[in-house]
Design a protein around this nucleic acid. Structure first.
Lengths: 129, 129
DNA sequence: GTTTCTGCAAAAAGTTTGCAGATTC
DNA sequence: GAATCTGCAAACTTTTTGCAGAAAC
């Protein structure tokens, strides 16, 4: 069995994701981690994101063709993508009632669902067009 | 103004997407188009998908990290991704009531929404585990 | 006949892998 | 001290671009 070690790189990357307001792209993770750890290589970011995903501490979210990562354990939630600033936010209110096992019209058995809302975030909505 | 011409490649690619049961990956589009048009280059597929997208005849859908394309004009719909066979189906029943302009908790102004359901398609549900 | 397209090959962009030195246990 | 990481550079994969010949108008 291969042991996995605690390193500053892994701590910083996990911390960046845990403190984020929503899921982040690989580049954002790298950028934010660089302030705490100048010199951090992008390859390490990829390797660590993969490791943390295998450990279940984070998980990938695909949005608009990009793969983003977010910390796990935030409970059932969805995402809001701002069409003006491009930021992605986490929403804790769920707009659908589809418990596991629901049979959807057509005979599809639902095990899970994902919802993404698009529009203007509070900041952009308040800013002049 | 740049004129855009009608070519066999564009017809075939548009036709492949219009006849598909759900959104297709670039490779699937290429593969299916090849039977009608041996020798079709992948670069042409990329260029044509981009052109058709700009014309609004098709649009991209991102699912599980892959970019798929589907014909437009199918009305409001969502997708069901089968966790067993991996196929993606189009659903015409919408499980959410979020008209444009709805203000979501937190002050997010909703312009559009996307829903993806995961589970077992009718065929897989009927097949033995 | 002129302009726009296509296929090929080269170039970019994004992600993964091999390796030697650094770090953790 | 031994095993596991990290950064760098090279290798891959996926998507885009340049160009000369082919096709559309």
């Amino acid at each position: 069995m291969i042991a996995t070690r605690t390193t500053r790189q892994r701590d910083v990357i996990a911390h960046v994701l845990e403190g984020a307001e929503g899921p982040l792209a690989v580049n954002d993770v790298h950028g934010r981690a660089l302030s705490d750890l100048p010199g951090l290589g992008i390859a390490t970011v990829y390797r660590t994101l993969k490791l943390l995903t295998e450990q279940g501490r984070i998980h990938p979210v695909t949005l608009d063709g990009e793969t983003l990562y977010e910390a796990s354990g935030k409970g059932h939630h969805h995402h809001f993508s701002c069409t003006r600033c491009g930021r992605v936010f986490t929403l804790h209110t769920c707009p659908v009632a589809l418990p596991r096992g629901t049979v959807y019209p057509g005979g599809f058995i639902v095990e899970a669902h994902e919802v993404t809302l698009y529009g203007q975030c509070p900041q952009c909505a308040a800013a002049p067009a």
